[in-house]
Simulated scan of single mutants.
Amino acid sequence: MTSNLDPLFQAGRIGDIPVANRIAMAPLTRSRAGEGNVPSDLAVTYYKQRASAGLIIAEATQIRPDGQGYIKTPGIHSPEQIAGWRRVNESVHNAGGRIILQLWHVGRISHTSLQPNNGKPLAPSAIRAETTKTFTKDGYEPVSEPRAIEIDEISGIVADYAKAAQNAIEAGFDGVEIHGANGYLIDQFLRDGTNKRTDAYGGSIENRVRFMREVTEAVIGVIGPGRTGIRLSPVTPANDATDSDPQPLFNLAVDELQKLDLAFIHVIEGATGGPRDTGAPFDYSELRRRFKGAYIANNGYDGEMAAEAIASGRADMVAFGRPFIANPDLVERLRTGAPLVQPDQQTMYGGGAEGYVDYPTLKEQAPA
């Protein structure tokens, strides 16, 4: 074992969930769901292969049909989807792993071809993400113009987050992560670049945080706070997400989450999948100070950075995303100092087994 990485391999707890180590697998969209957006047989293999992670955060999964923004992403709103995820979870648990589900509504980041009855995507305000494309049956296409959610629709969306959480537990997940990041629906309500509402859900930061708080309250109301977390991305520009003053906004958001006694916050530090330094100053330690639950750090960490974050108390767990794609045994590779395989960009989204379940482990690479 590489001694300076020892903190990564300590057992612990994230809320009510025991974890064997401090290495989380971040949620990764792969666009390989089957008919009816049901997790496939390949998904069962894919997640089982990565069960050595202390905690798997399964890929973003739509809470209802109009929450879909990309082709072949799984849902958690039909009996068939629940049954498909149950098979995934049984395989992970049989391999000794822990797994939670990321609850997702994309909001405006969608295309009419993916929406029920080819309708317009929903959003806090009718503002199109001009520079963003989505993945449809016809390839990458610009996202469609959204429509603003009517205020009397909001309670139904909140209720569907709660129902999705209940479905996730029925499917055997150990908990859920609410997707509040990366310019999707909850993040769209939070940021003043995407939320121009003049009602109780827009304007002041107190109003813009309201939807996030109501969703979180609804979820913990059905599965409890110890199995509930949320993902945030204070300064990422993903999906045209912008805010004029993110520090007070996310300080308040975390203050509200702290009142709910959540298991964790999962924070993308910097640009999602990009540089940690976006040029927008942000003090992540302020979020850590305000939140008494677990802090899962994410974005651009290598083994040494992650171990230092755990050892110093800056984080309780560190999430790795793309390294888990091509390294199903990432935990063992970090433990032994083995080189990491780089993922094939051509097989990242869509397709079948290639670039999904055929990356070898160290044991499989070893000579006979």
Rank of each mutant, 00 (worst) to 15 (best):
T2H: 07
M25W: 04
N37T: 07
P39Q: 08
P39W: 06
V44R: 00
I57V: 15
T61K: 05
G69H: 08
G75R: 01
Q81L: 06
W85Q: 01
R87P: 06
N89W: 00
I100P: 02
L101V: 08
L103K: 12
W104S: 11
W104A: 06
H105G: 01
T112N: 11
L114E: 03
L114F: 08
L122A: 10
P124E: 07
A126D: 14
A126Q: 15
A129H: 12
T134G: 10
T136F: 07
Y140R: 09
E150I: 02
D160A: 14
K163M: 13
A168Q: 07
A171V: 01
F173D: 00
G175V: 01
A181L: 07
D192V: 02
D192H: 04
G193F: 02
A200E: 14
R208F: 10
F211A: 01
F211Q: 11
M212K: 11
M212D: 05
T216L: 10
R227N: 11
T236Y: 08
S244E: 05
S244G: 08
D245F: 04
N251V: 14
I265F: 08
I268C: 13
G270T: 08
F282T: 09
Y295N: 09
G303A: 06
E308W: 11
I310Y: 00
V318S: 06
I325K: 05
D329Y: 06
E332C: 03
E332S: 06
G337A: 10
Q345R: 14
Q346I: 06
M348D: 03
A353R: 14
E354K: 13
D358S: 11
D358A: 09
P360K: 02
P367R: 08
